[in-house]
Design a protein around this nucleic acid. Structure first.
Lengths: 194, 194
DNA sequence: GTCTATAGAAAGATAGAC
DNA sequence: GTCTATCTTTCTATAGAC
């Protein structure tokens, strides 16, 4: 079933990308619908032809952020297994990610923001998180002890590391934190990963 | 030097506690000064006799939250060394903490919220984080390899675990996440801790 | 220091022309 | 579908009485 109007789909996609970038950079409440629409090259009156409310936009933007994320792009390369995981951690626990120099991880950039949101927003976040755990768990060797627990704990460490780094004032501490998470994360996923 | 007016100090302390509780529960932008003052049993006109702006209140509330935290209380007991660390992790990575049934950790509850704040707010957050790392690091046995890196990585895991858990929709995933962080965290801090 | 009252600005959502 | 214009509400911050 092709789209009734291809132009509408493109506008919608521009709004979602603009919304995710802005929400990640400044948080839900500090971003206005006018700004999102301006970034998407429309005026704010057009917004309600695509979404019913700002919260609905937020929920959908989380999914859009996940589709644009580093992990989604990595999965389109030929990297698999241990190589995929170490490369993912290297990109994730990086100052360029903290500074939002590429499309960031919604789980890290929106964590406490989402906790203050409504049901549909938290539902979208939960879906993205479960999907990450599923991918990380399946990517670990089948005989890894406590495979799912490792995936959960390392994810929490990565998300927490980036979320905290973004709040910090002190570049030296940021560097040390990201590095520590990378070293200890690789340890948890199995010493001889690469 | 005793306080010029003891009553003023008490009002100020009430405002700070009320502010931290509300900011942690709903996020900076979703809390109004009127609400904070009402919870502190005053009207909002009195606010500006204590603080110059809402952001200034936020910065100070982060410090107040740290002083009221589980770790601060634990340090006033006789628990030390491995016992202190395992007890801390048990209280921290707990559903009661996620549900804010006791004074929560500002690092976990305000992480992405602080990242969107101004300089003084991030400065206060950084101070609290550095202090946590210092305490955890010093509490580990002096001959622990990579002592500071362990403290940083486990802190990120704990903060990330609680921050993500608060955003999640699904109680089963929350339980699994908190448990995984506890098991893997104890592993990182040294197998034979207790 | 605390109160009531209000100024002044901002933002979500809607109406109606094109 | 997108635009301009506006309704309506909410909130920070201030003024001035007590």
């Amino acid at each position: 079933m092709p789209w009734p109007n291809e132009q509408k789909g493109r506008s919608r996609e521009r709004i979602l990308q603009s919304a995710f970038d802005l929400f990640a950079a400044r948080g839900y409440d500090k971003v206005t619908i006018s700004e999102v629409m301006r970034e998407a090259q429309m005026t704010h009156g057009a917004f309600y032809n695509h979404f019913g409310s700002k919260q609905e936009l937020y929920a959908e933007a989380i999914g859009a952020g996940a589709r644009a994320s580093a992990l989604a792009k990595l999965q389109q390369t030929e990297a698999r297994g241990a190589e995929l995981l170490t490369e993912f951690m290297r990109i994730y626990l990086n100052e360029a990610h903290v500074r939002q120099e590429h499309s960031p991880c919604p789980l890290a950039f929106l964590a406490t923001d989402v906790a203050n949101g409504e049901g549909e927003v938290r539902g979208a976040y939960t879906q993205v998180f479960k999907r990450l755990i599923s991918i990380m768990s399946r990517t670990l060797p089948a005989d890894t002890p406590r495979r799912r627990e490792r995936a959960l704990a390392v994810s929490a460490m990565m998300i927490g590391g980036v979320a905290v780094a973004r709040a910090l004032d002190d570049e030296r501490t940021v560097k040390a934190l990201l590095h520590a998470c990378q070293v200890m994360g690789e340890g948890l996923l199995g010493e001889g990963l690469t």
